[in-house]
């Protein structure tokens, strides 16, 4: 069952998705297998043997009248290197928006983002809160391979690619931070609702951080807490 709150991408709908998700988590009905926050809706997967669609619908209608719960959100500061080696599309983004590359980076770094949802691929965050002056469509056709750690923008959002995958977003930098590890207790660094800020780092600092995360001397779960 899909509980939809808007057609377009609307931060108020995202907040209502989170509130419903949190309300359900307080006392989950038997048979509700899992919930999946999307960008404008909450998907409810349920076992038809344990929880009928009719009962689930009744339950949702009752929850709609409850006071909203604001779930806890973690805050993160994620380093990004915007140097040319990693900023594959930065010149094109600058040309498209009429800014210099430095201005694009300044605007991307200045924003506070909220993880509207995490998904498609393991750990991929959809970060709302992009500077409206940087809004732009996805690339057509998409790239066959986007390198892991790429930080990219499209539509009204920014994201971080946890793994090398195909993708159509416009790449303006790369983070040395591994944001998904199946071996962690909580495999995704970011959860829906978390707040993310970026800080710009040099290529030298990127290399040092990347080496630390790779050899285990640095742990992003502590290192990147804001």
């Amino acid at each position: 069952m899909l509980a939809e709150f808007s057609e377009g991408l609307d931060p108020r709908a995202v907040a209502r998705v989170r509130a419903l998700d949190a309300a359900l988590a307080v006392d989950p009905p038997v048979g509700l297998t899992e919930t999946v926050p999307g960008l404008r809706s909450l998907l409810l997967l349920h076992d038809p043997l344990l929880l009928s669609a009719r009962r689930l619908r009744t339950l949702l209608e009752r929850l709609e009248t409850l006071p909203e719960i604001t779930p806890d959100a973690a805050e993160w500061l994620i380093p990004v290197c915007y140097e040319a080696e990693f900023a594959i599309d930065l010149a094109e983004i600058a040309a498209r928006t009429g800014f210099t590359t430095a201005q694009v980076v300044a605007r991307h770094v200045a924003a506070a983002y909220t993880a509207f949802a995490v998904g498609s691929f393991p750990g991929l965050p959809y970060l709302g809160g992009l500077d409206p002056a940087l809004e732009m469509p996805r690339r057509v056709p998409p790239r066959v391979v986007v390198p892991a750690g790429s930080v990219a923008i499209a539509l009204t959002m920014s994201n971080i690619y946890p793994q090398a995958t195909p993708g159509g977003w416009n790449i303006l930098g790369r983070t040395p931070v591994p944001i998904f590890d199946a071996a962690w207790d909580r495999p995704s660094l970011l959860s829906p609702g978390d707040v993310v800020r970026h800080r710009a780092v040099s290529g030298a600092e990127y290399d040092a951080l990347a080496a630390g995360f790779a050899d285990g001397s640095r742990d992003p779960r502590q290192e990147c807490r804001a």
Binding site: E34, L43, G119, F121, R186, P187
Partner: peptide
């Protein structure tokens, strides 16, 4: 695996 779609799994 159940319960991890919310983080993309």
């Amino acid at each position: 695996r159940t319960g991890h779609q919310r983080i993309g799994v």
